[in-house]
């Protein structure tokens, strides 16, 4: 379990992360969603003890990362697949990493096999394609057989096959009861991989919910209504507590379903020419939500 409590990070006068609190639970994939520059990587670096928070703290099963005795056995992370010396072989890279946490040398070959890099284990990591580098990064994350895993934008730049592989891997790890925390700036990606979503914008928490709750809330629809008796209908709708925008003979109604509007119109004897539910796209809703955070952030 990862607990983030009031986490903040300032660089001089700019604030990258402000007062962020959330919990990442085991047994599911938790998506960390936000536009580029929202503070996702900074938050992950603070969870891993790489960056010092300006305020608040992050705990791994109740312990700050820096106090873990053999952190790789508890937490595996892939922050950037290019963090490898290009002239060192994949196997040597994992060999020194295994040694830091007293992991048996046999683990190196196990994880290389698990990510399908055995054939190129002795090749220079600098010659790897992005997909292979990503696999090496995942091998380093899995090295200590950790309960908690963090992946920062793991599918960026991968081909469809690589994306499918990573999705399957993350879901498999969560099924084994591990805590899987994965960031992305793409909602479509997250909606296919994650069970739960933590959404941030401008370094602030926007929501933490299940994916289906987020989708339902984010795409909460409006209804387009056309009627020759708009004024009467509008009065009735407002009375019912709906939000109404008028554009000539057309009303855009929020807060009521099309069924409720139709029944209301019938009760008031209003003729309807059109009754059309408008479902916003998920991406649109996400942009609206995070754009709101931008305005909020600068006020």
């Amino acid at each position: 379990m990862i607990e983030v409590v009031g986490l903040g990070k300032r660089y001089g006068r700019t604030t990258a992360v402000r007062d962020l609190s959330f919990t990442v639970r085991p047994g599911r994939v938790t998506g960390f969603l936000g536009p580029n520059g929202a503070g996702k990587s900074t938050t992950m670096r603070m969870i891993l003890g790489l960056d010092r928070p300006s305020s608040g703290h992050a705990l791994i099963d109740g312990t700050p990362y820096r106090e873990l005795r053999h952190p790789l056995r508890k937490v595996g992370a892939l922050l950037d697949a290019r963090w490898v010396h290009p002239n060192r072989s994949a196997r040597d890279h994992l060999r020194w990493l295994a040694r830091t946490n007293r992991l048996p040398p046999g683990r190196v070959d196990e994880v290389l096999d698990q990510v399908g890099l055995t054939a190129v284990a002795r090749k220079r990591a600098g010659g790897f394609s992005l997909g292979m580098a990503q696999r090496l990064g995942i091998a380093s994350a899995l090295l200590g057989d950790p309960e908690v895993l963090l992946f920062d934008e793991p599918v960026n730049g991968l081909d469809p096959e690589g994306i499918a592989w990573i999705r399957g891997l993350m879901r498999g790890l969560a099924r084994q009861g591990r805590t899987v925390f994965v960031s992305s700036h793409l909602l479509s990606e997250m909606s296919q991989t994650a069970d739960e979503l933590i959404v941030i914008g401008q370094g602030k928490l926007i929501s933490q919910s299940t994916v289906s709750e987020f989708v339902a809330a984010a795409t909460e629809h409006t209804v387009r209504v056309r009627s020759p008796q708009v004024e009467r209908l509008q009065k009735a709708l407002v009375h019912k507590g709906a939000t109404v925008e008028q554009d000539g003979a057309t009303l855009v109604v929020g807060g009521l379903s099309s069924a409720e509007i139709g029944e209301l119109a019938a009760a008031h004897g209003v003729v309807l020419h059109e009754l059309n539910p408008q479902r916003g796209s998920l991406e649109e809703a996400y942009m609206r939500l995070t754009a709101g955070a931008v305005e909020f952030g600068t006020s």
């Binding site: 820096r66 950037d80 290019r82 010396h85 290009p86 990493l97």
Partner: peptide
């Protein structure tokens, strides 16, 4: 400096927070 250049210093500090 190559550790800073290639980011392995972060991997190192991640594995050895002390």
């Amino acid at each position: 400096t190559t550790e800073y250049r290639f980011g392995t210093i972060r991997t190192t500090f991640q594995a050895v927070p002390r």
